[in-house]
């Protein structure tokens, strides 16, 4: 399975854009021997995982097994935790993003993230969405910005609920609405890679379906990694699944194969609900 890139992409360190016809081969992100520890406590043990472009990779595993920690490696969010040390290589577009030369700010503008707990800014709904486009100068005019905000909210399935109250604070929304607000905020900057940490944990079935639809739509152009505790969701939206346990990668493969015919005993026990 080989994917080619048609859109031009900047490399991370410099603005040299790649030739449009030049092919980038599968996978989009290649993680090699990732170890993460918080102080003395190691949370991730030697994980190597390829993440393909234009598809959804689901990370599953019992609580505390290191899914969020691993996800945060992919946009260097672990930098913000003082005690956290990450080693290993994460190759994205031919560059190791753990390289000290890489500017994490630039990296994060291309790798969007939706957090496990909704964390809207203490600003209005509109400003929450407009924040990213503003700091990255994506909108030329006010109309552009309005349009971006509306589009992002529509895609996250929130527009109908908030279109009359765009200036009320983001914190005034319900938990599920906040979660969709954060999704809308993340996609507003049009990242190329989107990391989602349990994006549907507070959503009702209708909103969940809307988000899964969105994920499916985003998949056509972007690379998506999603952490989920719902086996059904993993089976529905993802093409590949990786099963984590106690900080180790137990098994990874095509989602169909993992769910119908897992190679490892532990994987089978987990997806059939025998532990975890």
């Amino acid at each position: 399975m080989e994917t080619t890139i048609t859109e031009s992409r900047e490399t991370l360190t410099a603005g040299t854009s790649m030739d449009e016809t030049q092919g980038l081969t599968y996978p989009r992100i290649e993680c090699k021997n990732i170890n993460v520890s918080y102080g003395d406590k190691q949370a991730i043990f030697d994980i190597s995982l390829p993440i393909p472009d234009r598809s959804v990779t689901a990370l599953i595993g019992p609580s505390g097994c290191g899914k969020s920690t691993f996800l945060r490696c992919l946009n260097r969010m672990n930098d913000t935790i003082e005690s956290c040390k990450v080693t290993g290589e994460i190759i994205m577009d031919g560059e190791n993003i753990n390289d000290p030369d890489i500017d994490p700010v630039l990296l994060r503008s291309r790798v969007g993230m939706v957090f496990q707990k909704p964390n809207p800014f203490p600003k209005s709904i509109f400003d929450n969405i407009a924040y990213g486009p503003r700091i990255h100068g994506l909108a030329e005019t006010r109309e552009d910005l309005d349009e971006m905000v509306e589009k992002s909210l529509r895609r996250a399935g929130l527009w109908e609920e908030v279109k009359d109250r765009l200036s009320s604070p983001g914190n005034s929304l319900s938990g599920g609405q906040q979660q969709r607000l954060c999704i809308a905020r993340a996609i507003a900057v049009r990242p190329e890679v989107i990391l989602m940490d349990e994006p549907c944990s507070a959503l009702d079935p209708v909103a969940t379906a809307r988000i899964e639809e969105l994920i499916d739509e985003l998949r056509k152009r972007y690379c998506i990694v999603i952490v989920t505790h719902s086996m059904q969701q993993a089976a529905r939206v993802s093409q590949r699944t990786a099963f984590f346990h106690l900080g180790e990668l137990v098994e990874m493969g095509e989602t169909d194969q993992i769910f119908t015919n897992p190679r490892e005993r532990r994987t089978e026990d987990y997806i059939t609900g025998r532990f975890g």
Binding site: N75, M77, N119, F121, Y131, G132, I135, C182, V189
Partner: peptide, 14 residues
């Protein structure tokens, strides 16, 4: 809350 800072950093804010 640190989550607010995280939100901004994850948007690519300096």
């Amino acid at each position: 809350p640190q989550t607010l800072r995280d939100a901004a950093y994850a948007m690519g804010a300096t």
